[in-house]
Design a protein around this nucleic acid. Sequence first.
DNA 1: ACTTAAATATTACGGTTGTAATAAAATTAT
DNA 2: ATAATTTTATTACAACCGTAATATTTAAGT
Lengths: 128, 128
Amino acid sequence: MKTLPQISEAEFEVMKVVWKYAPISTNEITDYLVKTTSWNPKTIQTLIKRLVTKGALTYEKHSRVFVYTPLVDKDEYIGQESSSFLNRFYDGDISAMLSAYIDHDKLSDSEINTLRSLLTKDPKKGGA
Amino acid sequence: MKTLPQISEAEFEVMKVVWKYAPISTNEITDYLVKTTSWNPKTIQTLIKRLVTKGALTYEKHSRVFVYTPLVDKDEYIGQESSSFLNRFYDGDISAMLSAYIDHDKLSDSEINTLRSLLTKDPKKGGA
DNA sequence: ACTTAAATATTACGGTTGTAATAAAATTAT
DNA sequence: ATAATTTTATTACAACCGTAATATTTAAGT
């Protein structure tokens, strides 16, 4: 498996926007994040640039503007981070993790039910 | 809620040892981690020191040696990290997260069953 | 009391991150 | 063509991190 680039927390916020709206220009990314964060546009520029350097984003020039597309797949990235999280914090024991969420986050009955139905679905259907 | 100190990934490995064996001396921590990691003892010293500075550990002097005890609660820390992870990566949607684990990590039937039974336990019993 | 050994403390150093400011290049308007 | 504006590129800088090395303090032996 190819190794995905290291994406910092702030950079990840940028990635989320690009994943959602790509292809998207610098200004569009900036407009969006200026509204949803407390970041200065200059900061957002820097984050975008770093993501390009890291190989997480690529772009096409449309005359003066750059229009970005993700180079890393969202599900793959999140899946990898999730596995790594599970290993570091719960030694890979997913039951231990779920237990901790149930205790710590005090899941409501309806959340519990949703989870249960998730686990009850016939895995034969829906598979690849 | 009091804010827990920021603990880095390498520091967290040290914390795990202290959580497990506290009260524990510098040398005991070092011996343990030298075996389970590729770290130089000096590196481990540094990590311990930083954890003290950050308020994650405290110690008692027993003549020349320091004997450490955690100042942050393991479950509390992990719970907080877990909530934060869930929010950042899954927008707080625990079903989405579990779904992703099921898909990405290809959970076995027995794992699925364990999870299901976890969710089926009567929450009335065992509560505080 | 001195020397030695063991433990702790201080210093180092490059990479990453958060957070921008300044500089340069490219377009657009005049 | 120039000037003004917009976009991108370069530079900055401190905190945090991984990874130690060196220095100092303190206890133990002799």
